[in-house]
Design a protein around this nucleic acid. Sequence first.
DNA 1: CTGGCCGAG
DNA 2: GCTTCTCGGCCAG
Length: 550
Amino acid sequence: MAVLRNDSRIILHLDYDCFYASVFEVEQPALRSLPLAVQQKQIVVTCNYEARRRGLHKLQLIKDAKRICPDVVIVLGEDLTKFRNASKELYLLVRSLVWGGRVEKLGFDELFLDVTEMIDYNISVLNPNDLTNSFFHLDRKDPTIGTAYDATHFQGSTFPVTEGSPVPTDLSSLEMRLLVASHLQGHIRSKLEHQIGFTATGGISTSKLLAKLVGSVHKPNGQTTLLPPYQSTLENESNVHRFLDEHEIRKIPGIGSRMAQKLRAHITGQEDSDAKVTVRDVRLFPGMGPPLLDKILSGLGSAKGIGTKMWSVLHGVDNSEILQGRDVPTQISIEDSYGRLDTFEAVRRELVTLSRSLIRRMRADLLDNETPPGRWRAHPRTLRLSTRPRLPPGSETGRTYHSNRISRSAPLPAFIFHLDENMDALAERLVQESVLSMFRRLHPEKSGWNLSLLNIAVTNIVESAGDQKQSSGRDIGKMFQQQETVLRDWTVQEQEPEAPVDVLPPDSEQAESDDWEDDEPLASLDCTLCGCPVPLFAHEAHMMYHSVPE
DNA sequence: CTGGCCGAG
DNA sequence: GCTTCTCGGCCAG
């Protein structure tokens, strides 16, 4: 089973250093020199590097942190608003630098960038006679925009570490493209630091998988490029394998605790093994390949084609695209956890508080900022309530793993889009008319429940008809760019005459489509008062609804 | 579409 | 021992 390697893209990964802590440091620079920990409930969710030097770490109990470092400064970070805002500001800066806006956000503190076009353009304008005084062009049209750099060495670190760093001879080689990319990465990190105040750690390679993994080699405030060769030959193992093979499987993005557990169990032959199992151990295990991986990981819940995907990942092959951020999220949720929540009145009060926050977030994230009236750019259709019952004290043994959240959903009542009403009244009404009935479906017993968590969410968010999806379809050509530099790695056996890739099977997905009702979408207009899309036939009734005095 | 699982930070 | 507050993808039913 040959694994195809596609190294035509250049991908950067950025990870802001201890992001939550940095947000407070930017706000209050005096904190930078002090040990700083960010608290949510009873734990330290993250801390700055001064605190780590003194023995603190992520996900540590507050009381342990105070015992180990009595002078630690603790700030409360349960409200994520400022983190969300800082994340967005950083994202917008990076996006403004990258051609085609090819930037994907992962959580609040990580980005993937596809900079292939920028790099190939800058390779094409290099002067081979004076590489030391090169200029990185950030703009195709205005040649004055950009930054000077020395194209005879990598910026930052490399894996593996090089001694005398010889200059790549072939300007179009992968090595030269990565070298140029390392300077772009340095420029971006420097902008983030000097314009906004955040240091970041960077990785440079040809896929999300490798860029992210190699970036973590020099933390914080460093960057690392994974050097070619990326393909093994008969005499030489590729740097991809040298790098990847030593990683414990759990460290590989996409392999979570469940998958790691199953892989370890299969490799060691023990039900519950905590032995260190590396990528190499799995990759070279007798009989290993996509079919066996499918079998090992097929346990309910695993995605289809998981074996093939995992087999690729174990070889450092990851063709997943950098997906442009949507302008609306697919869901918005608010949650809080509790030490004890067992009376109806307490539950009701918390649900109102959560609902108020949810409505505030809907307004912040889904409302148009432009025109003073403010129109809804998107409408969630579903409301979901989740709870996590506290596990009974007797059931200790960790044999049972699952997130133990349960949920119910219902249509989202249209009145929450009403902008004239204040949020307290809307939250009150939402709880009364919708959330409480979901709660009763979740917990039919009158009492006796003991909840450790409440979560309320709007999901199934659809964009408003009139809303322009800006710049979503650009660069279709990029999606078909692919083969080109596709080389064969891992030449165990000659491959069978390969069926032409990228050709659709004769009659795939084609028929079937015409027994669908061709539902003509109902003509509708957005209500000018609340922004809801309302079918024409319902306008009159809808406006009467607005005229009902509360 | 719903409810749950898995994985990400 | 598995904690916080999210978000997205995927699956069977």
